[in-house]
Design a protein around this nucleic acid. Structure first.
Lengths: 206, 206
DNA sequence: TGGATAATAGTACGAGCGTTCGCAATTCTT
DNA sequence: AAGAATTGCGAACGCTCGTACTATTATCCA
């Protein structure tokens, strides 16, 4: 690996930290150069433009999210167990991000009315994650873990709400115990949609 | 009313629009002056600083929120009816803000890690609203509309999550039908916590 | 090890930011 | 209507931003 690629990776790593804290839109080349003990132009040269830098940071974040949340969960068997794993890892990740900030969430606010490639990329990523959740819920219905009349979109919507509330209450309002409330909310959610004819689901409930 | 106060109010009105769209941090005096067909210094003179302007915008938003959501709801009789009114008006307000943006929500992301008077003010306002919801839920428990073992904080948490998800899915992802999902989620929520020994609550359900 | 190539620093530019200040124009008051 | 007070404009300041260009230094490969 050449030196250039190495420093580029190091820059992106620091940039992800900064963007998590201040938002993608708050990410600035000057501050990034300071943190890297480099000149502005030295940092800039690794990316064609600030927007390219932001896109790379976004991709890096997505990659880490997949690595920490998605991939370990799809190793779990289909059904409620996998869904629980997805949510648990998601909560864990966000609860860590309570200190650093979640780019999917802050990005959703920053780019809800700012067209361009970053918005497109962000929408695609968040959409992909919601899509993965949706597929998992549908599998839960198919295999009988959840009621047949379950509305998958509705369930995903409410799961997302629990995570957003966690981010809001824990990171912004600094209310203690938010993590437990997310977990409690999820359990109640699952309980509502659980198929009473499948006691095996109860057993699978660790 | 003197002319100065009149233009000041007009400026704040436009500023609220801009801040809803671009966030409080994205609110800029130059753009505001353009929209007002005034000079930058002319606009600036009405406020001691940009931060003061932002604080005034925040207060104006809070006032409108109270006017549209809170005050009409406290006229409803205590209990589940008032809670339903609060949520319904809240949803209605946010669904309008899907086009313009909600400052409570965008502000929570913008100022989750930015200390200062704006964060303090914002936290106080959001805290006050959550406090009002909390009191209302407690009254629901006291008057028997909701189960005695209801955790009020938990219920408020989940209500907030439904609203955040609405803002996220409708404004950022532009998913149709999100409004209905918020309503459905709330109904399920109430159903879970409803006191089965109080059929009167079912009657009150419009 | 020497020459080609890549990586970084330095400087400068134009734009936009919040803010200051002095002056002109308008509005209010009596 | 005249004087006083308020209101708004225009220009300028210092700052930071992203970006372009040039020169110097470090790294890679034969």
């Amino acid at each position: 690996m050449r030196k250039g690629e190495l420093t580029r990776a190091a820059i992106l790593d620091v940039a992800l930290d900064l963007a998590s804290r201040d938002g993608l839109e708050g990410l600035t080349i000057g501050l990034l150069a300071d943190k890297m003990n480099m000149s502005k132009s030295g940092v800039f040269a690794h990316f064609g433009s600030r927007e390219d830098l932001q896109l790379e940071v976004l991709k890096l974040y997505h990659h880490r999210f997949e690595q920490e949340v998605f991939f370990p969960s799809v190793k779990e068997p289909r059904g409620i167990q996998r869904l629980k794993s997805m949510f648990a890892r998601w909560v864990k990740r966000v609860s860590v991000e309570v200190a650093s900030g979640c780019i999917y969430i802050s990005g959703a606010v920053e780019y809800d009315d700012r067209p361009g490639p970053i918005r497109e990329e962000l929408m695609a990523m968040v959409g992909a994650w919601q899509g993965a959740l949706l597929r998992c819920v549908k599998q839960c219905v198919e295999c009988g873990d959840l009621k047949a009349d379950t509305d998958p979109q509705q369930l995903v919507y409410e799961m997302y709400g629990l995570i957003l509330a966690l981010h809001h209450d824990a990171r912004f309002l600094r209310i203690p115990g938010s993590l437990g409330r997310a977990a409690t909310g999820f359990e109640r959610l699952i309980e509502t949609y659980r198929n009473p004819q499948t006691p095996s689901a109860v057993v699978a409930q660790q």
